[in-house]
Design a protein around this nucleic acid. Sequence first.
DNA 1: CTACGGCACAAACCTACGTATAGCTCGCAC
DNA 2: GTGCGAGCTATACGTAGGTTTGTGCCGTAG
Lengths: 221, 221
Amino acid sequence: MTDNAKQAGPSAGDPIVLIVDDDPSMRRALTNLFQSVGLKVEAFSSAAEIMEAKPPAVPSCLVLDIRLPGSSGLDLQADLAKANIHTPIIFITGHGDIPMTVRAMKSGAVDFLTKPVRDQDMLDAVQAAIERDRKRRDAEKSISGVRSRFEALTARERDVLALVASGLMNKQVAAELGLAEITVKIYRGQIMRKMGAKSLADLVRMTDALGIPRNRGHLQT
Amino acid sequence: MTDNAKQAGPSAGDPIVLIVDDDPSMRRALTNLFQSVGLKVEAFSSAAEIMEAKPPAVPSCLVLDIRLPGSSGLDLQADLAKANIHTPIIFITGHGDIPMTVRAMKSGAVDFLTKPVRDQDMLDAVQAAIERDRKRRDAEKSISGVRSRFEALTARERDVLALVASGLMNKQVAAELGLAEITVKIYRGQIMRKMGAKSLADLVRMTDALGIPRNRGHLQT
DNA sequence: CTACGGCACAAACCTACGTATAGCTCGCAC
DNA sequence: GTGCGAGCTATACGTAGGTTTGTGCCGTAG
């Protein structure tokens, strides 16, 4: 442990709260609230503004007024989803209705708070949202290495991988692909090395995490 | 195909909609609506009433007025969750508010409709809910067989299974458990037979589906 | 043209896996 | 006590998995 920066100020790995609200006093109030519990904050006044900013690289969440100049909060939510940005969203609203709430929640919002928002409710929601994002990022990171190694495989190696991970024996893989068994063995060894799998069990779990389809070997009832 | 009952009336495998509403006219209207599209229906007038009925064995969903005599719809939702009944729930409400909606959706409700409910909205929601329940049941069924076979393993077989599925070689499993390698081999064979696994890949997927913890062999970044 | 990488195969060799047959102890139910 | 199943091991044998070394073809980038 050479690292003793434990109670230090904001640094690179800290979570951040992104606020989007067109009301300056609201932005200020929320900013103060989050900073009072040691959270980093970045505030925007419109949907367009935040779409131009680069997605945060740390656990984060969005606090979003549902009524925004130009596009609504729901539109922004949809745009972010389309852009493959999955930062958890907390909506706040002064005059929202139930269909709007349902739509937001169905689209994955973590919470939907009504004005006036109680500070503690907001902090709880942000806490839960950031925790969710942290988990999502952890999961994402743990397969990104696997994915990049998979991309480095040649076409033939991928063919072999799919069948091996399906549970076929080398000779069966060979028959399926019209190869000699020895060739499959050699590819198989290369796959294990390139993927960094220390066992077949590893390899199977990697392929499942990558969503590679199986040709055989289903779980039967 | 000895089965030609294709366009016949309601039978055992058909989905069913469960209605809970204290208003008889509402029950009647919903019942008619669902029956008009060929869905089976069962109506209840209170939460207590449906809790006494046995959970349906076919894909189903609940249509629930949020305001019920005695306990509210949200309480019923919580009670069902506690009883490990995961039938999807669609709420209807005449005078719900947003916090109530959020709570219901966070607890897993599929939809939350406001009166007056448009027929098409209700049918769409029920359709989606039943589809979700069907998928959940399919997934449940596909692992229930695996689980019961796992229960049939002896204690030692389970020990071996955990380590084998972690990717350890027979000799390593043996060392870990203080056994001879040959013993592990024999257990391993018995495990494959008892679990109905045709390959190690099968076995690995079964253990993952069962949530059996791994002792070694993590995916590295 | 040459070098390189992907693809494919072979012989030889070693390790790991898996089964059959057989035998042992222990605890428990009848 | 007898029988039974779980647990454990051994010898022996056959199959599957995996590496090394070496060969050759093909297409393409330099």
